[in-house]
Amino acid sequence: MDWIFILLYKSFWGGIAALGFAALFNVPVRSFFHIFLFGGIGVLIKFTLLHYTFNIAFASLAGAVAIGFLSIPAAHYKHTPPLIFYIPAVIPMIPGILAYRMILGLITLTGNPKSPTFNTTLLETVNYGLKVVFILISLSVGVVIPMLILRKESVKDIKVLFAKK
């Protein structure tokens, strides 16, 4: 049960991270709570799937798709375009540590190729780099997948339950 507490703790901080970006992007006050919630839900889904040993790119994709779907009713309810919810909400899932390790690896790779650790560094850097690239693609494509599936130009054309008139 211990991992569930860690999961909830991390989701909370994920929501906070999303809120920071909401403030940075000057989001209207009325959408703050939803951004916090969606940021948390994205992180929750990502880390739950990671716990069940899913691939990190797939876990990120699942989180991003969930955020994309949640943004549509929220857009109706708050009269705000969905991108205002999904952009700050997916940012906490961006793999900062992996990207840093990749950059550090790339710098090391410019050094002496005869050094005994060169091959290991090369393999690790390629691994981190590919993960970063695939996670970034998953996040950016994931949030727009709902709009692609529903095939509408504007969220106003999508019928949702409990829409405020």
Partner: peptide
């Protein structure tokens, strides 16, 4: 303040 908290959030996620 909020961006500082976001930084703390990223650190917690890592």
């Amino acid at each position: 303040t909020l961006v500082g908290l976001a930084g703390a959030g990223f650190c917690s996620l890592a």
